[in-house]
Design a protein around this nucleic acid. Sequence first.
DNA 1: GAAATTGTTTTTCAGAGCAGAACGACGGCC
DNA 2: GGCCGTCGTTCTGCTCTGAAAAACAATTTC
Lengths: 252, 252
Amino acid sequence: MTGTTTVDATMNSFRILERLVASDEALGVTELAADVGLSKGVVHTHLNTLAELGYVTKRDRKYLASMGLLALGEDVRSHLGVFTAARRHVDNLARVTGEVSTLFVEEDGVGICVYMAHGSNDWTPEYACGTRIPLHVTAPGKAMLASLGRERVADILDERGLDAQTAETITDRNVLRGELRTIRENGISFCREEQSAGVIGVGTSIALTERAPAAAIGVCGPSSRLTGRYLEEDITGQVISTAKSIQVDLTR
Amino acid sequence: MTGTTTVDATMNSFRILERLVASDEALGVTELAADVGLSKGVVHTHLNTLAELGYVTKRDRKYLASMGLLALGEDVRSHLGVFTAARRHVDNLARVTGEVSTLFVEEDGVGICVYMAHGSNDWTPEYACGTRIPLHVTAPGKAMLASLGRERVADILDERGLDAQTAETITDRNVLRGELRTIRENGISFCREEQSAGVIGVGTSIALTERAPAAAIGVCGPSSRLTGRYLEEDITGQVISTAKSIQVDLTR
DNA sequence: GAAATTGTTTTTCAGAGCAGAACGACGGCC
DNA sequence: GGCCGTCGTTCTGCTCTGAAAAACAATTTC
């Protein structure tokens, strides 16, 4: 059925863990057992295991996800060359534009926001670091697609499709192909409410060495503020020069 | 002798996952099997399970930790009230001081750095978000200890001890108790190379509602730069006023 | 092109994971 | 303050799974 086999106990542990992670209050064994469909006894054993591993904490007879989970993500991120090189530049991009600035990488044909820096403008997208977002709906995602080989893009589109996230999402392959060509020519990509209504983004890819995954940076914000020359000249210019700075650091 | 029972398969899965997370290159089944002491066959099954869950990726016959792990940490963090309230203030603290600014919470008697913002000065501590750090060796940690009840502090010291991290670490209970009193009086704590040689920190606790864990913010940097009035007046003042801003947001 | 190495699958079986029941510790209610 | 309901924890079997070993397949190496 699943092709190859999996470890049931591990899946159960993660179901419990993910349930805790999604909750903003401590949960009891009985409630968790009902949620994941296991007996109270086993759930308790799993919780005990996760607690011993440091990923779950017990606060007066109830369990909650531990902040130790942050270390896992931070660790995997710190081993990503492009992140260590780009972080301060993305921070700076957020500082000079005042807008949310992001670093994305491609993984398994989807985009993952690896880092997000907030500018002085108090706004935040509805996705967070680690969220998987289809490549064709964001500016950095399209920039990464444009930087990939033609056959790789075809594979990704075959596997992932072009689902619509909003009314503006590009769902036609030929339209997308045309846009990728434009992106390659201009070295910049835009996302006009294709991922989320009311949100506009700008992005550009970061050329990487072999072996490394595709990567891109971006700036995004409410469409009410990101308009006209501010968007198409000021911000675009800052994004491009930031990408150049990152590349300089990367090839050192 | 683990007292209660644990799920072996889960522990094995996490041993494999943690090994991958700690590596900055893709690892093969054979190497992983040797590292964790399991047969190639099971390791393969575990990897397949973790891949299906989205925490591991396969890049040409080798496995590596997925960026999807970031989502777990980000999720648990976003459910932490003090983080959502404090983030932009900590960002701002880093902006105005130019130094690394952090948010810590207490969990199971240790401090965990929940958020770190970098200022314009290019420096970073050797710990990252998610790292567990003994409370008695950092400025925010001591601030949290000072904000806890006397009996709670005794419990923590009994359980965790006062291990020396550097030559400057406070290892004597009475000395620490005296310092905590001073911290309570002044509303500010300092860490002078007690956690890491050459690193100085300032911190202050954030008063929280019931139920919530202790929390504190801090600023840290190289001892060569953080000295004299800059440290004891400028930065200290910014830390205290930032904490006040956070409390205002929290009690809304 | 052969040989060695590595990822994947298969086989086999001890014991681990799971359900269900029993136990015990809180917390509320009268 | 004592009884009762509820929830976390432990216990008891039973089943089926997770794990070792070996066979197999797909690579890489020489």
